[in-house]
Design a protein around this nucleic acid. Structure first.
Length: 268
DNA sequence: CCTTAGTCCTGCATGC
DNA sequence: TGCATGCAGGACTAAG
């Protein structure tokens, strides 16, 4: 499941390949993968030139020369590949053709991922909170929410309106590094601990970017490569295994329908 | 307004 | 081995 570091890795890899290029044609195999009218989508992209590719939260954003934007959200199983593998063919949803030699294949098993076109007059991704890549920003967001909500901290970290880009894996990792139990209400966390969390969250995200993201099952970079950060996870997916810090068994609980892994001793 | 539960989708793991 | 069940979850929507 691509979160901020995975999307950042994909953008870094694609940037030199797509900036300055124009869409020659678009082939839609699954209309569900398009947010909006597929015909209008195809027509608007055709012969449109990409001026810039960037990331915002978990979205890939293509700036187009006419002022509009294309966004792609990969959700759980979405991939953007230059050369789909044999197993990918069955799940090919959209093909973006640039020229005879170069196309991008949007492959998505679960059909949750979406491509969306944003007209120039629309504000791009208006509901997203700030990027969680520097600690003063994260601290400001969490402190200001502290008096406004009764929700638990894990839920807040996953809320894209609060901070954009954090998903289940890095939320759990940051809470472990910050020594905070995922089920703690934000309003009950002391400022010093919020400060700690604000420092470790940007740090873990940047470290995961350096490691080209976490590949557990589906995530792949456009050249079909895997990430390395799965080898550095402290708690995510480690239920029943000993904590690297204290040896206590890592537990798993459910918060808002999502698995949350934590060390009951380090995050007591 | 705020918060929670249900929905989408398909492969995979589990149990009998 | 086969079949049924349930689990995984990001973001949206409906309901409380």
């Amino acid at each position: 499941m691509p979160e901020l570091p995975e999307v950042e890795t994909i953008v870094n890899e694609l940037k030199p390949l797509v900036e300055g290029k124009s869409f020659q044609s678009i082939k839609i195999f699954e209309t569900r993968s398009i947010d909006g009218n597929p015909r209008e989508f195809t027509a608007a992209l055709k012969n449109n030139k990409i001026t810039k590719l960037f990331r915002r939260g978990k979205y890939l954003c293509f700036s187009l020369i006419n002022g509009s934007h294309l966004t792609i959200h990969l959700r759980m199983t979405g991939k953007l590949l230059q050369k789909p593998g044999k197993k990918d063919k069955k799940y090919l949803r959209v093909k973006l053709v640039f020229d005879k030699k170069f196309a991008l294949y949007f492959v998505d098993i679960r059909k949750f991922g979406k491509l969306k076109l944003w007209p120039e007059k629309d504000v791009l991704l208006p509901a997203l909170g700030p990027e969680p890549l520097d600690s003063p920003t994260v601290f400001k967001v969490l402190i200001s929410l502290k008096t406004k909500t009764t929700r638990v901290v894990k839920t807040i970290l996953l809320d894209q309106h609060a901070l954009a880009g954090v998903g289940n894996i890095y939320a759990d990792e940051a809470l472990f590094l910050g020594g905070i139990h995922p089920q703690t209400q934000l309003c009950r966390i002391e400022d010093a601990a919020i400060k700690r969390l604000s420092q470790v969250l940007p740090r873990i995200l940047k470290r995961a970017i350096k490691n080209k993201g976490t590949t557990l099952s589906d995530y792949q970079t456009p050249d079909s490569g895997a990430g390395d950060h799965q080898h550095f996870l402290k708690v995510y997916g480690r239920e029943g295994l000993p904590c690297y810090t204290c040896g206590t068994e890592i537990l798993r609980t459910r918060i808002n329908g999502r698995s949350s892994y934590f060390c009951p001793r380090c995050q007591g």
